[in-house]
Amino acid sequence: MHKTKVVDHLILLFGVFIMMAPVVVAFMTSTHDALDVHLHGLQVTWGGHFTDTYHEMLTKKGGFTGEVTGARMVMNSFILGVGFAVGKIVLSMLAAYAIVYFRFRMGVIFFWMIFTTLLLPLEVRILPSYDVMTKLGLVNTYTGLIVPLLASATGTFFFRQFFKSVPDELLEAARIDGAGPFKFFIDILVPLSKTMIAAIFIIMFVYGWNQYLWPMLMTNEESFYTLVRGIKQILLVWVGSQIPEYNQAFALAILAMLPPVLIVVIFQSWFIKGLTESDK
């Protein structure tokens, strides 16, 4: 038994190594200066330039127009991540509420219509979506960045399944207690969905945070840059004899990783709870 434990741990450690090594390398590399990285490639040792790199990355105006700082990119990414997550949750909860609790005509058809949009991710409809947004004059706005992606079949589906598992008697008790549709939603369903909301928030936040294609299309002003785009941008400034700021690119990558990781670590117990058990 002792032996299997050792083997178990070796396997787990190996897994950890595979997962963590690239992150560690990225972090270590980000603490060297750009020249070092250019000459010697990736680093696995501490380079001693941590404060410089990160300070510069967060505050130095970068890009062609010199309008955007790392801090600004963090903010943009947050706006996108949170806007996404909150918008999707609100929208998909309301959609699921309508589908489950209101017997309107063709409700099932509507549900399946929403569901089939799973087969049509953004990439498939990106040109028409872009077209609509241009016509509405929403290029280079947060609204244009967020709104077209809010409709969420996944979220609607999860909330639908959850609402279906809420006992009917709860609705009936609430009706007898004088709660109308709005009150029932706010007073009963939303609090009951708490863990579910947390779980979906995490998924959607990370999804929004990592958006690349859509922001690239929708915004061409650098003040709308997100972290994910910023990384790419740093490497693109290779003009003449200038060395790309590799260290800053890695620093940005680390920064881009941090919030999703933190959110998952902090909320993971909630997350698991939300997906597996329920409070009914």
Partner: peptide, 12 residues
Amino acid sequence: AMVFQNYALYPH
């Protein structure tokens, strides 16, 4: 007022 078989208390 109604009392249900599974009580239907508001769990939260």
